[in-house]
């Protein structure tokens, strides 16, 4: 079964074998408001844990999406270029940003589980 881990900056990574699908949480899309533009990295780019993986722009602000773990971008959700609002409508599903090939699966240990993340959001 796929496991999903979370960052304090409200990114998620859904683990599928040695890859992970990265997006932002429902809480994050709600805070951001209507997404009007998404800038995705090029395939093959190496990202480091905590570094910029993508940029998401709402009407009022530009925000960085950080890589939850280090890895190589193997796929991007180019559907978002024509339909950035998908990030608001289905952040955990069709609104994903990038697929990473994990560099060091041990990095996942430092991220929150679903339950831990939900508790964390309640404190905000």
């Amino acid at each position: 079964m796929a496991e999903t881990r979370y960052t304090k900056d409200h990114e998620y990574i859904r683990i599928e074998g040695d890859t992970g699908i990265v997006g932002i949480t429902d809480y994050a899309q709600g805070q951001l408001g209507d997404v009007v533009f998404v800038e995705l990295p090029s395939i093959g780019k190496s990202v480091t844990k905590g570094g910029e993986a993508a940029v998401v722009e709402s009407v009022k602000a530009a925000s960085e999406v950080y890589a939850p773990v280090s890895g190589e971008v193997v796929e991007v959700n180019s559907e978002l270029e024509g339909a950035p609002g998908t990030v608001n409508e289905d952040p955990a599903g069709k609104g994903w940003f990038v697929k990473l090939k994990l560099k060091d699966p041990a990095e996942l240990e430092g991220l929150m589980s679903e339950g831990e993340y939900q508790n964390y959001v309640k404190t905000l």
Binding site: D9, K60, A61, S63, E64
Partner: peptide, 10 residues
């Protein structure tokens, strides 16, 4: 995720 610029709340 972190806001760089916040025009409305600027």
């Amino acid at each position: 995720m972190a806001a760089d610029v916040d025009v409305a709340a600027a």
